[in-house]
């Protein structure tokens, strides 16, 4: 029963997105434009700091792009009054959070399918590059954490007066440790390389981050929705 409800909720988000296509396309445009900005910010022709700096920038771009998805996260429900209907339905509140986290995660992955090749094109095609397997693994792990925590925080921010401004303020302190772990994992694979254990530890850290905030989201979301 609950699995069917979950699938239905996620499908609702995806169908709405496919019809209107307002978030994912905007995110793609945003992330590509920010790569161009970073490229020129680092000095155009030969980027200062090389691949290491660029890989750090990638994580900043990923976090800022995710902000766009999270800002819109509860906007549609609010604008069309869908939320009251959802709350009236006999669904566990935690399931609403899980569905939101899943669809956010899917949006993030969809954007990154375009963003990562673009990043390679702009920054990595000539010169040293991080291990692509590690990079993809770290991105996926980070997506889960961003979606889990972000769906909870977006719920909190939606009550505020300046909710579009409030969300990044509430979310970014949590992004610092995430970016720190992710940058350490990915730049560690650029030569001179650190040990494989180093990378494994960092990926494990990202997994721990996900676990902690999935548990928090699951446990606390019922206090965020209106009764």
């Amino acid at each position: 029963m609950s699995r069917r409800a979950l699938v239905a909720l996620v499908r609702k988000d995806l169908v709405l997105e496919l019809r209107g296509s307002e978030v994912v396309l905007a995110m793609v445009a945003f992330v590509v434009a920010s790569f161009v900005l970073f490229r020129f910010g680092l000095g155009g022709g030969r980027p200062a700091g090389g691949t290491r700096a660029a890989t750090g920038m990638l994580w900043v771009a990923i976090v800022f792009t995710a902000m766009l998805a999270l800002t819109r996260s509860f906007a549609r429900e609010r604008e069309h009054g869908i939320w009251d209907g959802l709350l009236a339905a006999p669904i566990d509140r935690a399931l609403l959070w899980l569905a939101r986290a899943c669809s956010t995660c899917i949006f993030l992955v969809a954007v990154q399918v375009v963003a990562l090749p673009a990043f390679w094109l702009f920054f990595l095609q000539d010169g040293p590059a991080p291990d692509y397997g590690v990079l993809v693994a770290a991105v996926l792990l980070a997506d889960v954490g961003i979606a889990a925590l972000g769906s909870l925080v977006a719920g909190l921010a939606s009550a505020g007066r300046a909710r579009e401004v409030l969300l990044p303020v509430l979310f970014l302190p949590f992004a610092i440790p995430l970016v720190l772990g992710a940058v350490s994992a990915t730049t560690g694979t650029i030569s001179p390389q650190t040990s494989g254990l180093h990378t494994l530890e960092r990926l494990g850290y990202l997994g721990l981050y996900d676990t902690v905030f999935v548990l928090f989201g699951w446990g606390l979301f019922e206090f965020v929705v209106e009764d």
Binding site: V153, I176, G181, Y209, L220
Partner: peptide
């Protein structure tokens, strides 16, 4: 809402300690 956000800090403290130690190379 304040209580929920305050409790998130309980998760953030150990996560940050760990991240800062792991991120020393950065």
């Amino acid at each position: 809402y304040s209580a929920v956000y305050a409790l998130l800090g309980v998760g953030l403290i150990p996560i940050s300690v760990l991240a800062v130690h792991l991120g020393q190379d950065v």
